[in-house]
Design a binder for these strands. Structure first.
Lengths: 260, 260
DNA sequence: CGTTCCCTTGACACTGTTCAACACTGGTGG
DNA sequence: CCACCAGTGTTGAACAGTGTCAAGGGAACG
């Protein structure tokens, strides 16, 4: 542990399980090479913490935000509404992720963001991000890489929604969630805590609530997963990976150790 | 027209309708602010031209390329195969686009690229791209922005495939193609030349060939489009936009003038 | 204790797929 | 020059996968 000067804001921070910058650094180190100098610079970022309840809109389509945010705790999603009022979730974001980092270079939001579970966000001003990008090319590259990985995930979702049937599709989505939560250090004892509604899950995989319900039942029947309350456990990880046709290379993790 | 020294490679270039760098600069100017200095630097990029026939794989999943490419002519797509052998096209790319620009920071390709029509590519070494990014922050920002727009398109595709029915979905796809081709200056007399198979189109919208065929028929029946050979004409652009629930803001064009 | 949200179940309708067949086109080789 | 072939577009019919509607039950919450 490095010794750092303690500012008033850090007093509040210290009440939380980790310094908010640590969550960000952990994530970036998971996808790129970050030197200690770079990490120190990141620790200097002003991150304003903010708690959000579940199902609260964080940004909506058309907004022109002046800051981005890092997910410190909980699960966040990006979504879009069609003209018919149907909702499609386009991606999930877990601790460490920067859902709207694209806001640095795309002024107007083309999708909305909402919390799926109670959580904690860390707001970072675009100006601060831009200046750290100018001063630290490796950090800029890491941020760019982060947005590229988001894009890779979108690509996978397009094929998931477009070409896999309900069974494989939900299995695939569960695999992705488990791997990402695991990578973010949010899985204990092989059990993921996912207080997510089946309706919301349906909005992610492009299925109706009823069908999600039946598909999850099928996955349970086949002994691939177990659910109790908001807890999800992968009983048969290789089987789930097979059922979901899941290959984690698209997540571009530096250490792709997905053993479970 | 600026006067520039003519190198041997430029002699070959001059046989083509435009200098390959011009296609790239036109595109970047369409999405970002590029100064004349930046443009001059881009003109200095070594771009190796290469003709490709239709339906030729350019890169395949797992490759670790050392260069990216710009589409100079024709239509290119990125796609993925599922374990069941089904194909999903995840995006189209037209003149000016940089389909695999993410290769700069993601070493291993998570999807494949293929030409959909006969075309011309311009190969640019990653090292050259990296060095121009280091020297010209605005160019770096433009490239980053380009990849962010790709991501925005993926997001739209997820919702298109996940939540719109066949009719709206194909209408939406046609709208996107027309706007992007138009923006790339590849539409004349309100007619797009799209020598694309209905099977390939089905792989893009996540529908079977048969259903694509019937849906296109429905769009023609309703007077929205006309097709003859490889030519596509939008007979009723507002109607097509309405049918496709199409809002071009996700393309993040600097001048979103989609009037047709 | 009622309300609300969510999960669950059944019946049924509908969208889209699969299979099979045929027409049209352009290319190729005898 | 013609026969053949492969690729593409088109059509019909049967079928599978998913959505919709409706209703009940359980848990959380005010």
């Amino acid at each position: 542990m490095q010794v750092r000067p303690v500012t008033p804001t850090e007093v509040t921070k210290s009440l939380c399980p980790a310094f908010s910058s640590d969550v960000l650094i952990r994530k970036l180190r998971g996808i790129a090479d970050i030197s200690d100098d770079d990490a120190a610079a990141l620790e200097g970022l002003t991150i304003q913490e903010k708690d959000v309840p579940a199902n609260r809109d964080i940004l909506i389509q058309g907004d022109r935000p002046t800051n981005s945010f890092v997910v410190l705790d909980g699960v966040v999603c990006s979504y879009k509404h069609t003209g018919e009022g149907k909702r499609q979730i386009t991606s999930f974001f877990v601790a460490g992720d920067l859902p709207d980092l694209h806001g640095i270079h795309l002024t107007v939001m083309d999708c909305s963001f909402s919390s799926m579970t109670p959580g904690r966000l860390g707001l970072i001003r675009h100006s601060a991000l831009r200046s750290i990008c100018e001063q630290r090319p490796r950090v800029a590259a890491a941020f760019w890489r982060s947005t590229l990985i988001d894009a890779a995930i979108y690509r996978e979702w397009v094929t998931n929604v477009g070409r896999r049937d309900a069974y494989a599709r939900t299995a695939h989505m569960l695999c992705e969630l488990i791997v990402r939560l695991r990578f973010a250090g949010r899985i204990e004892d092989h059990v993921a805590d996912l207080p997510i509604t089946q309706a919301a899950f349906g909005d992610a995989v492009g299925l109706s609530v009823v069908h999600v319900n039946r598909t999850l039942q099928a996955l349970r029947r086949d002994g691939l997963i177990a659910m109790s309350g908001t807890k999800l456990r992968a009983l048969d990880w290789p089987g789930l990976v097979r059922a979901g046709d899941f290959d984690p290379t698209y997540l571009h993790l530096k250490d792709p150790d997905v053993a479970f």
